[in-house]
Write a protein that binds this DNA or RNA. Structure first.
Lengths: 191, 191
DNA sequence: AACGTTCTCTAACAACGCTAGCATTGCTGT
DNA sequence: ACAGCAATGCTAGCGTTGTTAGAGAACGTT
């Protein structure tokens, strides 16, 4: 019934993902081609497709999830306080630029928030949520959006680096020194 | 000395950029290839390189700048008040998803803020700045980051659509109902 | 009308993601 | 131990991509 042992696809996926992550961090996304990746692993291209039948995009998704694992760890490494975790978040984005890009710009989309999504995403979201206690997740969602905006605009050089610290502190004040909201904004009418 | 008239490169650049923008909005970025673009314009690929010697990336930058022109108009179209312009910003990002992506994700980077950069970028930034009056640009920068984060995360389906309105109103409160800051946060030590 | 310069097109290159088909591998049953 | 078999991995190729060199056409000048 099984004349030849099936390869350990989980382990293979892990190895490929790790190599892709190393490659993207050291040489950028343009270096992450299927050929280069196979060559780096000492195998040929079709092997990659045995681990990721959906192709390159699925592989990139795996790298992204791996990135969420890393940022979850980075956030959990500091005390569950707003400013500390905000700083950790922005540091992560600044130091691991290409990986951060993969987590947001490239993949097709995996949902955050209270709902589903892969476990590392929920972990990362929870790590931020713990730093912004409150009855609902809205503040955390806005905090994430603000951090993501700051990170992205900084990565792409959109904002002057000189006022980076001022921006972080203002964002921190905004997100913490504001009383709870009671005006029910509804949730049906969105653009 | 000039046996044949040089083509009007400015006009050519404009035409190419407009076609690329239409194409990206109707069929997404995967459709914007040099061949397809040339075919759409009734010319061949080398003509595109005469207008954009730096290649495809420069062309995408031009599309991005054109997008900033469009978002500047969208912001200027509503009254210079915070909530209205925030709404206009998010509507623009939601309705012209692919174009918005080009403006931030893809290009190499053109600086915002008070400093230089192409004129449309400064116009768009000024349109937002007028909605957030204050002594410096920091609040506007954070506002832009927050809006950009909300827009991006929404585009990629990262945040549940149900609480979109609640997020907008919280962000608006954060950015407006907070007194001016006097703690000099410095600007040297950034990550 | 012929020239000369400049532009534009044809054609091709290298590299990309991806896939069909063949050779190889390693277990199984006698 | 030896042959059979099924799933593996590799070789080779297809169709595209961005980009570029060299041939051909077009136009103003003389």
């Amino acid at each position: 019934m099984s004349p030849r042992p099936a390869p350990d696809l989980d382990r293979r996926r892990y190895r490929i993902t790790r190599t892709a992550r190393d490659l993207v961090e050291s040489e950028g996304w343009s270096a992450v081609t299927m050929r280069r990746l196979a060559s780096e692993l000492g195998v040929t291209q079709p092997v990659l497709y045995s681990a990721f039948p959906a192709g390159r995009e699925a592989l990139l998704d795996a790298v992204a999830v791996s990135g969420f694992e890393a940022i979850a760890e980075a956030l959990e490494a500091v005390e569950p306080e707003a400013l500390a975790r905000m700083h950790a978040y922005l540091d992560f984005a600044a130091e691991r630029t290409h990986l951060y890009e993969a987590m947001f710009s490239l993949p097709s989309g995996l949902q955050f928030g209270t709902g589903g999504g892969p476990e590392p995403l929920q972990r990362a979201f929870a790590a931020l949520r713990n730093a912004f206690p409150g009855p609902d997740s809205v503040r955390t969602e806005v905090a994430w959006a603000t951090l993501h905006g700051l990170a992205t605009l900084r990565i792409h050089g959109r904002l002057p680096a000189s006022s980076a610290s001022a921006r972080l502190h203002l964002a921190h004040r905004m997100l913490t020194q504001l009383p709870e909201n009671d005006s029910r904004g509804g949730g049906i009418d969105d653009g």
